[in-house]
Nucleic acid binder design. Structure first.
Lengths: 254, 254
DNA sequence: CGCAGAGTTGATACCAGTCAACAAAAGTGG
DNA sequence: CCACTTTTGTTGACTGGTATCAACTCTGCG
């Protein structure tokens, strides 16, 4: 899949203590010998190909995962078999918490491209969390962030119109890219228009039109999945329901 | 408000070990002396009046709460000051987890009617959870259920039309009433039409029309907030996007 | 080069939001 | 206890945003 295996291997061997995601991930807030104990249970370097699944609906909760690089979507299936996208997971974000309630996964985690993840056996994680209060605290924090993302997601879905949702979505992405140290103003979307649509509760055509419109208004530039943010402030305004300004409207009127 | 105060007082004094919500609440899975330790930190018997708040946006996370009776809504405020209802909380359901991420509440918990709650100081809870693995496990389970409810909520919001959302909402309520031992077929809605609308992402008029239509189709009977489920199976069908049957459509056509 | 998947654009229909008036219920004060 | 106000819920008419259906273009890839 990749001819730079030796190099990757070296990078992948890094322990939690050396990982660039440390501050976002479970190790935040613990250190020294405690970190080593966490390190021991983390099975690193699981590579996942595009379209592969970390787990499926109905699978027992065995591990939680942290995307190390690459991106994932979690989807649930409605009675008629349609995918609904519950969330996107970028580097450093925990995947698999959906099984916390009943111990069985309620959604599927699908790699949006080639990716690799840290796999953390859940029983062992909770085990050592009882012994390391700092880890328990951080685990709760990470779960909390997941809850927050869900709430933000709902905020996009409720009583906002299509262009607003799309602006919110793009704005949220830039913030997350910034957090993990990637460029927040020029990036490649890891997901398809259809995925975005199923995430935002819109038809994929509407998403496409929304992107086009943002480009017409000179807020972003889009070429397929390549997106560049040209006017971040305007993006934020649009995300909060402000109509596009006069010049943009004039441009569209032509 | 109620002249049976002495009786209530006696009931409210019950410890976790005697509480009817035990199986739904934190004590599930622990027992004996361990239960007593949990019991010790629970400040019971806080009474909350209709419209009062357990906490506000920006408050530091000090306690989580379990509704003992009564119902709550949690709401977040959008930039323009509009309420969006993130969830409804019936007896036995944990409130306050929204602050898990940053230690600060992101939403407000408002009593929908007079209620009383168990207040559980959060630091002490996590403290003894490190010592009682059964409690830690149950805490994670309860958090997981909260996540599940959020996901179910999203499922209602994404690409479902108004009548479907309303049917799903009612169906979900009956399930929750059943769980806490209240009648799942005849109940009084604790929340207003507006709350339902802000929860489902609809206009309140649309919710009102939806209820009326369900009544016309003889699926439910509504008088203000009193609801009776007349045809549970049909309700489930409607919740899954099946059109109303011929006879109902004929009735509407008149 | 040709193909399949992904994305764009256009025309049309319809669901649900909005505005508005009314009805019923629940408080409020004399 | 009744009149008044306020809140809550219902119903109707109209409009607009978005889904849907359909054709087309672009991109990457074997």
């Amino acid at each position: 899949m990749n001819d730079t295996a030796p190099l990757d291997l070296a990078r992948l061997r890094r322990s939690c203590s050396q990982c660039s995601l440390q501050q976002l991930c479970l190790p935040a807030g613990i250190s020294g010998p405690e970190l080593e104990r966490l390190d021991d249970i983390v099975r690193r370097r699981r590579t996942i190909g595009r379209g592969e699944r970390l787990f499926r609906i109905g699978d027992a909760l065995s591990s939680v995962y942290v995307a190390r690089d690459g991106a994932f979507k979690t989807v649930s299936l409605s009675e008629d078999g349609e995918e609904q996208v519950l969330g996107f997971h970028l580097a450093g974000e925990l995947i698999g918490l959906d099984a916390l309630g009943e111990g069985v996964h309620r959604c599927e985690a699908i790699a949006l491209g080639d990716a690799n993840v840290c796999e953390v056996p859940f029983d062992q994680l909770t085990d050592i969390a009882t012994q390391l209060p700092g880890l328990q605290h951080q685990l709760l924090r990470v779960i909390g962030h997941s809850l927050n993302r869900d709430h933000d997601h709902m905020g996009m879905l409720v009583r906002r119109q299509a262009n607003e949702r799309i602006a919110l979505f793009l704005h949220g992405l830039t913030e997350r890219f910034r957090q993990i140290g990637q460029s927040p103003i020029a990036f490649k979307l890891p997901m398809s228009r259809e995925d975005v649509a199923r995430y935002l509760g819109l038809a994929l055509e509407t998403v496409s039109r929304g992107f086009t419109r943002l480009q017409e208004d000179a807020v972003i530039s889009v070429h397929g999945r390549r997106v560049e943010i040209l006017n971040g402030e305007e993006l934020v305004r649009l995300a909060h329901g402000v109509e596009a300004d006069q010049t943009s409207r004039a441009r569209r009127a032509r």
